[in-house]
Each structure stands twice: as C-alpha cells, then as structure tokens.
C-alpha cells in the first residue's frame, strides 16, 4: 500500500495512493462540500461543488474523482472556489422551485445546509419556475421534481446497490427529469422493490416518505452505509 504525502489547505497529510482528494480530506477533518457524491456509489463529478485548486494545474479538479498525488498542494477554500460554489448553489435554487419553508426536508436538507454554508441569502439569478410534477403514486414514497437537483444519487443507489435500476434520467439539459421505468408513475414502476434506498440517498426533499409533513423528513444515511459496508466486507456471508 503506497502512501502519498500532500498538503491540503496547507495541512500536511498522508494518504493511500488509491484515495481521492475528497477521501483524504475527510479523513483529515477537512470538509469539502459535495452534493452528487454518495458513499457506496460511483463518483460522477457532476455537481462541481467539490472543485479544488491544485498548484501547477490551471484547471479546477473535482476532489471526488481526483486521486491524491505525491507532493500535491491542494487548496479547497480559495476565494475563487468559494465564489464558484456559491454561484453553483444559487443556480440550483434558481433552477427548480425550492420553497424551504414549506418543504418536508426543511431543517435536514443538504441543499439548504449548502446554502447556509456558502452564505447564500438569495439567488442572484432569475428563477426559472419550470413546471414540475409531484408523483406520490407509490404506496410508501413520493418524488417532488420541484426539489430535485438531478444529482443522480437515486439513479446510482438503485442501480448499483439495490440492482433494480428503476430510476434513470429522461431528456437532457435543463429538461432532464428523473424517471421511473418507462416514464410511468412511480407507483406503477414494476422494477421498484420499494426498498427505500433512494429515499435515504436523496439530498433534498425531492424523494420523501409518503405522508411526510413539512420539515418532518430526515434522511438516514447510516442505513446505506450499513448495507454498503456489509456488502464490501461480506459480513452477510457466514
């Protein structure tokens, strides 16, 4: 197991060579904001919130997929990065119809936490006000596309951990929508095992337990971690 030494925000750390900057940072108590990243599923580098600066490389690099390197000087909190993060969060808020005050996830939402952490008090961009539907045809769960940030966690958790691949995206660009099966209402998606992993994976109030009232929905990520760890370490095989 080769070890690399590097600095993150001036702090000298060592990391295993197969680790990403994000993993190394987290192990050393340095927090880098993420949204699409979900432990146990593949990293896609889509939300761009974990972009970091690496000395000598002009491009910003996504910490979730960039491997550590010997002598790397990583900066996770420059003024430029902070500003970009804030812009990205503002773009997300302007893109769909997020109304925190009336949201099931209010107070427990990763997007809301991000907004607070980047110091966003309003979005400088115009609200797009897209027409988005709420689908609560599933017996136990619901999805409100107004609150979806298209992070794809539900798609990956369903495909990679549950193995059902009920979720996917349809369309593209700003018209991308999360869909179940052949764009049928969730309740009619034959492939859904109702396992609820997507509910736990969703960072916002987009996927929720049916019957949830405002601010009542709280995701429990440890349940996913448990399954992933148990599987990776084959804890279920005697």
């Amino acid at each position: 197991m080769a070890v690399k030494t590097l600095t993150i925000d001036g702090k000298a750390i060592s990391a295993r060579e197969e680790q990403t900057i994000l993993q190394a940072a987290r192990e050393n108590g340095i927090s880098i904001p993420t949204l699409c990243q979900l432990n146990g599923t593949s990293d896609i580098g889509a939300c761009r919130l974990c972009l970091v600066e690496v000395a000598g490389i002009p491009k910003l690099l996504p910490a979730c997929v960039t491997r550590v390197g010997e002598g790397m000087e990583v900066s996770t909190d420059s003024e430029r990065i902070r500003e970009y993060r804030k812009m990205i969060v503002e773009l997300l808020f302007a893109e769909r119809n997020h109304v925190c005050a009336a949201c099931v996830e209010n107070g427990h939402c990763e997007l809301q936490d991000l907004a607070i952490s980047v110091g966003m008090d309003h979005s400088r961009y115009d609200y797009m006000n897209p027409k988005c539907a709420v689908d609560i045809t599933h017996k136990r769960y619901g999805i409100d596309h107004n609150r979806c940030v298209l992070c794809g966690r539900c798609v990956r958790v369903c495909d990679e951990i549950e193995g059902a691949h009920t979720w996917d995206f349809q369309g593209r660009g700003a018209n991308t929508r999360t869909i179940s099966d052949m764009f049928v209402p969730w309740g009619q998606a034959a492939s859904c095992t109702s396992c609820g992993k997507c509910v736990q994976a969703c960072p916002t109030g987009a996927i929720f337990r049916r019957g949830s009232t405002v601010a009542e929905m709280q995701k429990d990520r440890t349940r996913l971690d448990f399954i992933v760890t148990a599987r990776e370490k084959k804890q279920w095989i005697a």
Partner: peptide, 21 residues
Amino acid sequence: CMDESCGKCVPCRAGTAQIHK
C-alpha cells in the same frame, strides 16, 4: 449550448440557461 447541454453537471446545465436568459 443550452439545448445541447447533457444536463449532468450543474454549471453547464443551469449556467447556460441563466446566461441565455
């Protein structure tokens, strides 16, 4: 670019739409 954005990453998906706006 807005129409052709694949929609995966936020800056391109939401950014091009805002720039266009």
